[in-house]
């Protein structure tokens, strides 16, 4: 079983919700990332989504855009992100890590080369924001050969038939985007999410469904979690990365994640 599969099975066995945490690789500086990842885990994160910086992040709100710009100021590349992953894996063999980004850097490296290097580095899956399932077959198959997952997204505008198709095409987990908009723009509406998730979980046929966008603290996480298999927190953590002295980042991240973890449990 994959690291993601084992983690979700363990969570389900314990009756716990998954806490997935997003930061941008290289934000605010490359040397911060690996210690920050370990801090997320110490705070109680079950999964890490590691953002791959891209010059034109068209689905991100201002907070994550700023995080990406901080990373790009250090010219952080996809190859650098894979090096950070290898470094993280030296001390953590258990926490699943999924890379999240935009297609062009993956295309530029080449799917085959990327998948080989990512598997070596201990990456468990990939989320590509601007790669809908119709365009994703080649990458998905290359990932699959290396035992990695292509995690796909479902949006509030996705029709029920299409949600079933997406669930069938993806693996690892299904990422439900809680509202129409960019990351960090507003609060997730628990009532609206609950109304959609019943159908989506049925369509997912056992694939775990995580909800992201608009979840920023323990209260919002606890409001959404009962309707899903877990939540994703991103902008709130990236905000901390940008507003905290570098030496304080691991400590602050850990406390922030712990607050959300406690609210979920």
């Amino acid at each position: 079983m994959s690291r993601l599969g084992r983690r979700f099975a363990a969570l389900a066995g314990a009756g716990r919700k998954a806490l997935n945490t997003y930061i941008v690789a290289g934000d605010p500086a490359p040397e911060v990332t690996v210690p920050a990842m370990h801090a997320l885990v110490r705070g109680g994160a079950d999964l890490i989504e590691l953002g791959v910086p891209f010059s034109d992040p068209e689905a991100e709100g201002p907070t994550i855009q700023a995080g990406i710009e901080r990373a790009l100021a250090h010219h952080v590349t996809l190859a650098d992100v894979l090096d950070m992953m290898s470094a993280f894996r030296k001390a953590d063999q258990d926490t699943p890590v999924v890379l999240m980004g935009y297609l062009n850097p993956f295309l530029r490296m080449g799917y085959e080369a990327f998948c080989t290097r990512a598997a070596d580095a201990g990456v468990d899956g990939v989320i590509v924001v601007n790669l809908p399932p119709e365009e994703a077959v080649t990458l998905r198959d290359s990932l699959r050969v290396q035992g990695m997952d292509l995690v796909l997204l479902v949006a509030p505008t996705t029709t029920p038939e299409r949600a079933a198709y997406i669930a069938e095409q993806g693996s690892g987990f299904l990422y439900y985007v809680s509202y129409k908009g960019v990351t960090g723009a507003r609060h997730a509406d628990a009532t609206a999410v609950a109304a959609r998730l019943t159908g989506i979980r049925a369509a997912a046929r056992g694939l775990p469904v995580l909800v992201g966008f608009g979840i920023k603290d323990g209260a919002s996480a606890a409001g959404i979690a009962p309707h899903a298999d877990g939540v994703v927190v991103g902008s709130a953590l990236v905000d901390t990365m940008g507003s905290t002295a570098v030496a304080e980042i691991p400590h602050c991240l850990q406390a922030q994640v712990r607050e959300i973890r406690d609210a979920l449990d």
Binding site: E58, E135, A155, T158, G181
Partner: peptide, 20 residues
Amino acid sequence: QDGRFGEYGGRFVAETLIHA
């Protein structure tokens, strides 16, 4: 039908926009 001009074109956008 799927918007391809040879190998070019296509539809590389966030899922939210597919319906539109």
